[in-house]
Structures are given as structure tokens and as C-alpha cells.
Write a protein that binds this DNA or RNA. Structure first.
Lengths: 192, 192
DNA sequence: GCAGCGCTTGACACATTGTCAAGTAGACTC
DNA sequence: GAGTCTACTTGACAATGTGTCAAGCGCTGC
């Protein structure tokens, strides 16, 4: 909305930190942490949903995402790119897991949040589709897959949810997650 | 708590129906749908968390879960049991997905819900552990897996989250989910 | 000096959860 | 038939959270 961009930045930084530390937090808590009034939040964001989504975008643009994406795209072949994609998620998921959980929860009741989050999921699925086409062009995709099926599979395997289950719920290390998922995804996509 | 078991049943049935139809609903809405006062809910359940968990238990015990479990345990060998386990989830997940989503969302802020849901997850993981031991005893488990690792993997693959992503978000049919997951899980566990 | 932007202050309506106290209707007992 | 107990109702309340509104204040640029 309107308002000073530096204040907006302060709010987003506070939201990012609080969500990472405490999980779901109230608008009041974010305002307090940012050192502004609760009303100031509504000068910059229409509602809680918009603030949460802006926080994700902020993490995306201020974190290592762009560099990791470039690294994936510079892989020598499709299957290596998929392996790097798994590593990208192992690296990046910790940065957004808490915000993502909060949005994922709010999605159930807030149509705006649902729509925006679906868009993001769609973007990630497109990235998966490009990787699968790459693998297929290399002739490395097992013929039992349709391109769409393989895309959906890769998308579901590299979701925050699976990462969250294995790393946070089951306590896997980053390396264990990467090694295991690279092996299973490769076996699934490329075949024996 | 106290109260007439038939009233309790009415409340649980209403909660089950409303959650399936509308996702997260308020205590007031459940009471109204059950034809009792909102206070009656608190005569039967300490709080919202307990009602949600009782609703899951109610679905478990009134639905096809027991029979499906027996069917899995009667498989001729470990890998067939795993395949049936995938089918069990394809069959059963639609029954509990909405309640599970609601609990999963509430888990972030409610420690009781978190603890109870973790217990349930632990139970499901134990079932996965038994299947993996069965596969290993058959000599069919790829040596690259540790028993724990394979258990966690099977547990994460057969989670409601992966099922939800593929079937609800991506629109896969029940059969497509079953066929694909059976193939990928088998390849991952048994090797080429 | 002053106009306007950005933020603050304090209030409000509304929804939701969980609690409390008093009341009621029916069944069961003596 | 009077009394009692159980299960539920009714209506109120506190606490917490979201989103809105109106008035005010301070700094900056003209």
C-alpha cells in the first residue's frame, strides 16, 4: 500500500524473525517486534494474508534462492539438475518452513491465502516440468512415466511437506535427506 | 467426560460431517449441527483439541480401517504388504483428510494437539517399521537402506501430505496414485 | 509558516474459545 | 407423590485475535 519502504522492510524483517522463532504470531506481536504500531502494519499490507505472502517473497528475494536456481540450471544434464534441485530444497527449506507452515494452516480458511499459495505451488511445479523435460530430452526418463506424471511426482517429492516430515519430524540431517532423496527420485524417474 | 454416550455420538457424527464438508468449523457450528447447545460439547470434551482427536478416533473405529489393516497383514510377502499398504492409504485417506488438515493446522499453536498427533504419527511409523522388517526378512530390502531409514522413507511416502498433494492438489485418480506410488516405493526399497 | 505524508493512539465491532452460574426436564428412588 | 440426580440449556462473561475508523502528532519540503 502506501508508507515508507524502510518501515515496510522493518516489518517484514520482524515478521521473518518472529515466524522463524515462534511459528504463528499475531499482528500485534509482529508490530511490537518491528517497533511500530499495530496500525502501521495495515498501512503497508491489506491484511495478515498479504503480510505473510510478502514475508515469503522477501525471504525469496533476500536469500540464496536465485543463486541456487542458477546453479541448478547450469547442471551438465537433466538428472544432475534434478539431483541439484533436491539439494536446493535441502538448502532453502529451512529458511521458509515456518512461514510456509503458517500459510499452509491459514489456507484452510482464507481463500486469498489459498489462491496465492496455489500460485506459488504452480510456479514450483513449472520448475519441475522444465527439469523433467530436460531429463526426457536426455533420453533418461523411464518410459513408464508420462511427462505430467513425472512432473507431479518430482513436485510432490521435493515439497516442503516431505522435507518437513523427514528432517524435522524424523530428525534426518541435511545430508541424509539429500542423499536418500537423490537416490530414490533418480531411481523412480530414470528406472533401474 | 460425563454425559450421555448417545449425545456424544451425535456430536462426533456432526463434527465428522461438517469437517468433511466445510473444513475447519467452529464449536458453535458443530453444536448447532448436532442439535445440542454449545455448552454440551464441553460436557463431553475438554476442549476443541479433544473433540477433533475424538473425531479421528471415531472415524478410525467406525470406518474400514481395521479390515484394511488385516488385509495388509495377510499379504503373502513383505513387498506385497507394502503395496497393499499404499492401497490402504489411497482407500482410507479420503475419510480423514479434512479432520487431519484441521488438526495439522491447529498443531502449530496447541501443544496438546501436537502431542496427540505426534503419537498417531508414531503409531503409523511403527506399522511402517513392521512392514520394512518383513521386507528385510524376505531378503528383498536393498542393502543401501538402514531399517530405520527405510521405515522413515515409507512413512513419509505414505503420509497424508503426499497423498493430498497428488490426489487433491494435482487431481490424480485413486488408481493413478496407487499404481505410481507402488512402483516408486517398490523401486526405492527393493532396488533395481 | 504550512501542507501533506507517515505513523500513533485509542477506540470500536466482530468472531471465537473456554468458563461459570442458574435453571429445567426427565428418570429413578424411597 | 416428593425428593434427588443426571444431562442438558440458557445467558452471561473474560480473553484473545482481526480488521476498521477517526483524530492527532511530527517531520519534511515547498
Amino acid at each position: 500500500m502506501t508508507g515508507n519502504p524502510r518501515t515496510r522492510e522493518r516489518i517484514l524483517a520482524a515478521a521473518e524473525r518472529l515466524l522463524a522463532e515462534r511459528g504463528p504470531v499475531s499482528m500485534g506481536a509482529i508490530a511490537q517486534a518491528a517497533g511500530v504500531s499495530r496500525q502501521a502494519l495495515y498501512l503497508h499490507f491489506d491484511d495478515r494474508a498479504e503480510l505473510l505472502l510478502a514475508t515469503v517473497d522477501h525471504i525469496d528475494s533476500s536469500g540464496p534462492l536465485a543463486e541456487l536456481r542458477r546453479w541448478v540450471s547450469e547442471a551438465p544434464d537433466g538428472l544432475t539438475a534434478v539431483a541439484r534441485f533436491v539439494e536446493l530444497h535441502a538448502e532453502y527449506s529451512p529458511h521458509i518452513i515456518e512461514v510456509a507452515r503458517t500459510i499452509d494452516a491459514g489456507r484452510l480458511t482464507d481463500p486469498d491465502l489459498e489462491a496465492a499459495w496455489s500460485d506459488r505451488m504452480e510456479g514450483r511445479r513449472n520448475a519441475c516440468g522444465r527439469l523433467i523435460r530436460w531429463v526426457a530430452e536426455d533420453g533418461a526418463l523411464d518410459p513408464c512415466w508420462s511427462p505430467d506424471g513425472a512432473t507431479d511426482y518430482l513436485w510432490s517429492q521435493t515439497s516442503l511437506r516431505v522435507w518437513d516430515d523427514l528432517v524435522n519430524a524424523r530428525g534426518w540431517s541435511r545430508d541424509r535427506y539429500v542423499t536418500t532423496m537423490q537416490r530414490t527420485v533418480r531411481r523412480a524417474l530414470a528406472g533401474p
